[in-house]
Design a protein around this nucleic acid. Structure first.
Length: 814
RNA sequence: GCCGAAGUGGCGGAAUGGCAGACGCGGCGGUCUCAAAAACCGCUGGGGCGACCCGUGCCGGUUCGAAUCCGGCCUUCGGCACCA
């Protein structure tokens, strides 16, 4: 492989120079328009891997392009440094999680510097440092003060591996998103954020340019459905509370032949009759033993138990039996449903199994409603068996029935969401302590803001016990109540680390502010993020939580506008050369530091961008590196070994070189705008080859040559920052190439003098003609008729039809 | 089951209604060299001596013209999935 340029020599040199000059620092006061570019900050796991490069190097190229377009670009970097891996590593090796984390941060910072990315290191934040988590705690208090943080008992997801509860978003297919352990259900008192208060607004994406797939996933996760709540009286001894159900089909209420409660529904014990007590108790405990995976399996046959109690349909007074069944979830709606077997598949299956009544309440052209139904059908023509509503068309049924219920006071239209409030308590050590104090007299009392941060104590035994390790530190836990000074206890749970990352993009605007999370001026100057890039796996976690935080911050008057990230781009996943995820056990890991050592940072960056479309990801191709190295070598050669130059403008060769240059500028600009880095590089390769051909052809026009060289260095600069800085200097230009103006193209110079027109006969290519640019259809047609090849194919016939696409194609139809 | 994306040479990929395979890897041949490496040049989808024919997962359609648009199917990968 080629070895013409010595990247070791200048990559280190320029890295140090840029650092010494603080070249990429984004000043707050700058007349240029701002551009806030952000790539998701990493967890400091200890080693920067190829995935980090794949996410960050193209993001850097895009940021550099904006800078050359004349923007004051802020491209910050930091570390998402709280979280379980530190704690687990610490347990395994007996070291302090803080030590482990901050040592990793140092190591990864220096690895990141190798990349040559234009990060503004002055703005670095580390979420685990007290001057950051002070403000994470501050956010908690603000949310608490606004009623957006509350403590409640609820069925929580307990991960036995991580020994902590998790948010719903962190449970994937009934397993822990991190450890893959099967999650258990536990009733615990925990802290929540009221993200559901923003459910409706979180469904709107009008102000953002985000990938469809992420928007769809958030929309599905929020799960809006319109329906009604209907209240049924309970006909059971000693129970005067009614049961409210949520239904999307109030119009089928006359077909409700039974009611089903979730086994965990609070009324189950009270309504169950003595005869049914044992069966119900057995079923409830059997349900409790099931994992979420077992319970949610759609394959499983439905089961349930009769409680012995009856509910009364408020519309017609019908007494319907109340069952419990695990296909009804306590976490959705009201945890109770009216079952309409005729018009709901699930209810139908249940009714059939247990011999319950089925009453159709809509006529249907293909169903004989006087016979037992063989299947449920969702919609029909008109209401039947529905008392005063008989004959109502399907389209009007929902509104009429709902209105009736509202008038009589036993129901109301509502919107229900699948989204649950965000559970943020964690029973682990390495996180920001929740700044609350529990007083026997005053309950949960916020820590006064002036006492922040609540520092995480050091030298703690943090083996997981299912309780926060902080509970064991008496001198930390026992504090006076902020209200009356009497003995009280600190909250010992820590916060979900997703909280740290929900507002980090705001802190970058003003990262060292000791008084506030950020100043209003800084927020006005920098927020929101103009371009965010990162992995799509955060669709319903980080990206949803951040939007919630932003909207809450907006309502507190801290930021302006409705969204934290205006444009979002999700890169794909870079795989090992064998097409699998890189992992030590597979032995397919490509280590960035090795690649940098062998080929240089520029070559590694370019190779990652060249393997394919960024959003697609895919296997890393180690042998393909040769092509990138050859290209950078050719670039080096043409700049450092120019031909003999002559001042002779307007030669054909000069015009042709200029044409290629201007075409390249046009194409490459379009590519970088679309993040199409692979095609961008292929075009730059072509340009380099064209320059090389011009060089070998002999003496070259000075102006055309200089323009070509200068342009190609500038266009390559975002991709390969080191070699371009070196070449820019060698070419006698002024430091730094990264603050030069992005070249613009001249359409006249990019235009071809001659065009090749493909001539088709009946849609098949039969000849190619070279014509002057702008040739008319008549000229093209005449030229085609003059061609002997075309003459043969026409065989003397006159074309029935002629299609001419100027500059492209002439199709003769005979 | 439902929703979405994708399927193109030996490989990564390009072309989003107009020359299929840009660019790169790999391979083959050549120049240079005592030789090798590097560099450079040429060839490289399949078939045919050739004019040409065939070819973008499969089947059909629209169009002067389809990798691209439409309908149906197959495969792969994501997402959702008893949400009332």
């Amino acid at each position: 492989m080629a070895d013409r340029y010595d990247f070791h020599a200048f990559e280190n040199k320029w890295r140090e120079r840029w650092q010494a000059d603080n070249l990429y620092h984004a000043p707050d006061d700058d007349p240029r328009p701002k551009w806030y570019a952000l790539t998701m900050f990493p967890y400091p796991s200890g080693d920067l891997h190829t995935g980090h490069w794949y996410a960050m190097a193209p993001s850097d190229a895009a940021a550099r392009y904006r800078r050359m377009q004349g923007h004051n670009v802020m491209f910050p970097m930091g570390f998402d440094a709280f979280g379980l891996p530190a704690e687990n590593a610490a347990i395994k090796r007996g070291i302090d999680p803080a030590e482990w984390t901050f040592a990793n941060v140092d190591r990864m910072r220096s690895q990141l510097r190798l990349m040559g990315a234009s990060f503004d290191w002055d703005r670095e934040v580390v979420t685990a440092s007290p001057d950051y988590y002070k403000w994470t705690q501050w956010w908690f208090l603000q949310l608490y003060n606004r009623g957006l943080a509350y403590r409640a008992e609820a069925a929580a997801n307990w991960c036995p591996g991580c020994q902590t509860v998790l948010a719903n978003e962190q449970v994937v297919d009934g397993r822990c998103e991190r450890s893959d352990d099967v999650v258990e259900r536990r009733f615990l008192t925990q802290w929540f954020f009221r993200i559901t208060a923003y459910a409706e607004e979180l469904l709107k994406f009008d102000d953002v340019d985000w990938p469809e797939s992420i928007r769809t996933r958030q929309t599905n996760w929020i799960g809006r459905s319109e329906g009604a709540r209907l209240t049924f009286a309970v006909d059971a001894a000693g129970v005067d509370e009614p049961i409210t159900v949520f239904t999307t089909r109030p119009d089928t209420v006359y077909g409700a032949t039974f009611m089903v409660l979730a086994p965990e529904h609070p009324l189950v014990q009270r309504i169950t009759t003595p005869a049914q007590r044992e069966a119900v108790a057995n079923y409830v405990s059997q349900t409790a033993r099931q994992t979420e995976i077992e319970r949610l399996s759609t394959e499983k046959e439905k089961t349930g138990v009769f409680t012995g109690a009856y509910a009364v349909n408020p519309f017609n007074g019908a007494r319907i039996p109340i069952w419990i069944a695990d296909y009804v979830l306590v976490t959705y709606g009201t945890g109770a449903i009216m079952a309409v077997p005729a018009h709901d598949e699930r209810d139908f299956a249940f009714a059939r199994k247990y011999g319950l009544e089925v009453i159709p309440v809509f006529s249907h052209p293909e169903v004989d409603t006087s016979q037992p139904l063989t299947a449920a059908y969702a919609h029909g023509d008109r209401m039947i068996n529905s008392g005063p509503f008989d004959g109502t068309p399907d389209a009007e049924a929902f509104d009429r029935v709902s209105a009736y219920a509202e008038e009589r006071g036993f129901g109301e239209r509502t919107v229900n969401y699948r989204l649950r409030d965000w559970l943020i308590s964690r029973q682990r050590y390495w996180g920001a302590p929740i700044p609350m104090i529990h007083c026997p007299e005053h309950g949960a009392v916020p820590v006064p803001e002036s006492d922040l941060p609540v520092l995480l104590p050091r030298n703690v035994r943090f083996e997981p016990t299912g309780q926060s390790p902080l509970t064991q530190i008496d001198e930390w836990v026992n504090v006076p109540c902020p209200i009356d000074g009497k003995p009280a206890r600190r909250e010992t749970d820590t916060m979900d680390t997703f909280m740290c990352s929900s507002w980090y993009q705001m802190r970058f605007a003003d990262p060292h502010n000791p008084e506030r999370p950020f100043s209003t001026d800084a927020a006005r100057q920098w927020l929101p993020v103009d371009q965010y890039t990162g992995g799509g796996e955060h669709a319903v976690m980080h990206l949803l939580y951040s939007r919630f935080f932003w909207k809450a911050a907006r309502d507190m008057g801290l930021v302006e506008g409705g969204e934290p990230f205006l444009r979002l781009f999700n890169q794909g996943v870079i795989l090992g050369p064998d097409g699998n995820r890189m992992s030590k056990s597979r032995g397919n890991v490509v280590a960035p530091d090795d690649q940098v050592d062998k080929y240089g940072a520029d070559a590694f960056r370019c190779q990652l961008m060249f393997v394919g479309p960024w959003e697609q990801g895919g296997p890393y191709n180690p042998t393909g590196m040769a092509g990138i190295v050859r290209w950078l070598n050719r670039l080096w050669t043409v700049v450092t070994e120019p031909p003999a130059l002559v001042a002779e403008p307007e030669s054909d060769a000069a015009r042709s070189l200029r044409r290629v240059t201007h075409k390249t500028i046009r194409a490459v600009t379009g590519d970088v705008e679309r993040f199409s880095f692979n095609t961008m590089i292929s075009r730059l390769m072509e340009h380099t080859s064209a320059i090389q051909k011009a060089r070998e052809a002999g003496s070259c026009d000075t102006a055309a040559w200089n323009e070509a060289i200068e342009s190609t260095i500038l266009l390559t600069a975002p991709l390969a920052p080191y070699i371009t800085e070196e070449l820019w200097q060698l070419a006698g230009r002024s430091y730094s190439v990264h603050f030069q103006r992005w070249p613009s193209f001249d359409p006249d110079l990019a235009r071809d003098d001659e065009i090749e027109v493909v001539v088709q006969v009946n849609g098949k290519v039969r000849d190619r003609l070279v014509l002057p640019a702008g040739a008319s259809e008549a000229e093209a047609r005449d030229a085609a008729f003059a061609s002997p090849k075309i003459g043969e194919w026409l065989d003397g016939k006159q074309p029935r039809r002629v299609i001419y696409v100027p500059g492209k194609i002439l199709n003769l139809v005979v």
